[in-house]
Structures are given as C-alpha cells and as structure tokens.
Amino acid sequence: MSARPAAAADPVDLTHGHHGTVPTPLLGMILFIASEVMFFGGFFGAYFDLRAGAPVWPPATPHIEPLEIWPIATILTIVLVTSSFTAHAGLLSIKRGDRRGLTRWLTVTLILGFTFLSLQIYDYAHLGFGLRDGIFATLFFTMTGFHFAHVLGGALFMYLLVLQSHRGIFTPEDHTAVTSGVIYWHFVDVVWIGLFSTYYLLR
C-alpha cells in the first residue's frame, strides 16, 4: 500500500543520519559498553559491600591460600595492557590506510588475548581453591570468570575483524567495526585493571 499523506506544501527528503559524528553502530557499541560497566559494577558493588561487612578479609574460614601478585597476575596484566596498545596500533594503521598494518596488529592482539586466556586457565588450575570455598572464592571466580568470558568474546570479535581485514574491506573512512572492536577491547582491559587492583593491590 502506498502512502501519500498529503500534497506536502514543503516536501522534505527522507535522508537520515545527520545527527552528530558518531556512526550508528559505534553508538550502539558505546551504549552496550555502558551497560557492561553497570553489569560489572553490580559485582564490584557486591564485592565491596561484602568486604565492608566482614571482620577480616579474606574471611578466616574457610582458609584459602592468599592470592599471589607475582608472577601470574602481573604477567596477565602486562599481556592484556600490551594487547590494548597493539589493538590501538591496528586502529591507527587503518586510519592511515595501512591495511596490512591493521591485519598484523589485530593478529598480535588476538595472540595476546589467547595468551591471557590460557594463562588464566593455568592460574585457575593452580590456585588451590574453588568457587565453593567461601565468599572470597565465590567472588573471585565469578568476577574473573565473567571477565574471562568477555575476553573470549572480545577475542572472537578480533578474530572476525582479522578475517575481514584480511579481505581488505576496511578503509580509512569506513572502519566502524574496527573502532567498535578496539573500544570493546579497551573496555575489557579496563575491567581487568579494576579486578587486578581489587584482588591483588587492595588486599
């Protein structure tokens, strides 16, 4: 059915999308990240609420081995922070029009991401306690576990970007997907820094 509402006195064209400079998908990603901040915010809020309510932290019972800042946690942090820089280098490359650079840097990021994931699994296996071992353990595994899942998701995103970048579909003008992916990766990195500070620095 066709719509002709009126012989408009002053017809206007139907083009849209002239509001601001942020591309639509990128705006979507930014909003998504805002919601993710609240998601992790819920866990951090729970952590600090429980910690504030506990006489000693971590609670005395059940006894668990204290977390070691060195070496694994520190390496994890270095790996992930570095990967943020490599991801950003990828973004800068495509802005310059360097597609090969983009592919290369994203691949490096991806490898660092998987290094992080593998090392995290190794760490989990050697901690000597599990999620059931009291509130500290529950918080630790839940929070780092969801972060782990987010790194995994981000890595998949990176992988898709590498594939597409390999096919050469990004240009200096049009690379919103890369920007979104990189922003997301930064976000995941920031969450890790929050976790690292909470669990290893603010002991």
């Binding site: 609240m38 915010g41 819920g42 429980l50 999620l131 509130i135 839940t142």
Partner: peptide, 28 residues
C-alpha cells in the same frame, strides 16, 4: 545489567555452591 549480575549470583549460589547470599559462609 545490575539485575543480570544479581540473578547470576543467585544462580551461582543455587547451583554451583557459591555463597553470595549465604550468611553462614561469609555472604549477606
């Protein structure tokens, strides 16, 4: 998202042995 986080905690407590809300094991 805060609800989602809460629901996940509830689920972990119920099914995976977590103790977020269990005062006898450090929760609240």
């Amino acid at each position: 998202p805060v609800l989602s986080a809460g629901l996940i905690m509830l689920f972990i407590d119920r099914n995976l042995g977590g103790s977020f809300f269990d005062p006898t094991r450090g929760g609240s």
